[in-house]
């Protein structure tokens, strides 16, 4: 199992991600510097959180043009699974691998707090380990996580079953109060059309060990077991 975690200048949650793979599946992920041009043959590519290039332009916009991203796009076309979390989700959107945009939180402030997200479908390679109606208690930590897409685009996402997670109450209800950042339709994470790419704002890697809570573990169980799916 080869997991490649990309490292951009300003990335800061790469070690959290490394620890999550190790804690849940004993998988030793590998860090790949953004100036590399060839990822080799990874079973999974992960774009972790942070402030790549300081987020001084649009979040993720500069990283989207790093040398390594050309190879990421090539892998995406081939169907290599990709997970982007927080700043990584922003990069996937900036590269056009996922649709929509991530705007500033409606509060205009950075928010770090635990939220709940409901898993929209449990039949994807990322969520097949989760029970039906799974609600994850997971932290967010971002200033620009307000997912936006046009009405038609949102409808298309919903019709095609491409919404991965929605902000919800602890018992799984999708309400405006449960939405921490103003995201359209409470969207917290989405897939690409083939459901080989998942981008999400909350940090499942920060809930994979006993003291953190273990609610992110099912996601990583699925990811650590991807080879079986591919075979």
């Amino acid at each position: 199992m080869k997991v490649a975690i990309l490292l951009f200048p300003g990335t800061n949650r790469e070690k959290d991600m490394v620890m999550a793979f190790d804690a849940v599946g004993g998988v030793k992920a590998e860090l790949v510097w953004h100036k590399e041009t060839d990822l080799g043959k990874p079973d999974l590519i992960v774009l972790p959180g942070g402030f790549s290039y300081g987020d001084y332009l649009r979040c993720g916009a500069m990283a989207a043009h790093s040398p390594i991203m050309r190879d990421v796009i090539r892998h995406a076309e081939r169907g290599t699974p990709i997970l982007g979390v927080c700043n990584g989700f922003q990069m996937l959107i900036e590269t056009g691998l996922l649709p929509g945009a991530l705007l500033r939180n409606t509060s205009l402030r950075f928010i770090c707090k635990p939220v709940h997200i409901a898993c929209a479908r449990t039949d994807t390679m990322f969520t097949r380990t989760m029970p039906e109606g799974y609600v994850m208690d997971v932290p967010v930590a971002h200033g620009e996580g307000n997912y936006y897409a046009g009405e038609d685009q949102v409808k298309a996402l919903e019709d095609d079953g491409l919404v991965a997670f929605r902000y919800c109450t602890p018992d799984g209800k999708i309400t405006p109060e449960a939405n921490p950042n103003g995201s359209v339709a409470n969207i917290a994470g989405i897939y690409n059309k083939r459901r080989t790419i998942l981008g999400m704002m909350p940090h499942p890697e920060n809930v994979t060990r006993a003291h953190q809570g273990l609610e992110g573990a099912p996601l990583f169980e699925a990811l650590c077991d991807l080879q079986k799916v591919a075979a």
Binding site: N12, R13, K15, D16, M19, A20, G49, R109, F110, I111, C112, K113, P114, D137, V138, P139, A141, P170, H203, E205, N206, V207, R209, H211, Q212, G213, E215
Partner: peptide
Amino acid sequence: WEQYDSLVMGETYFSPGITGPQA
């Protein structure tokens, strides 16, 4: 304190506030 990232690095046991069971 909700504006501060209190969780990055993943080793935070106690930090301020009255929050949910996983926090």
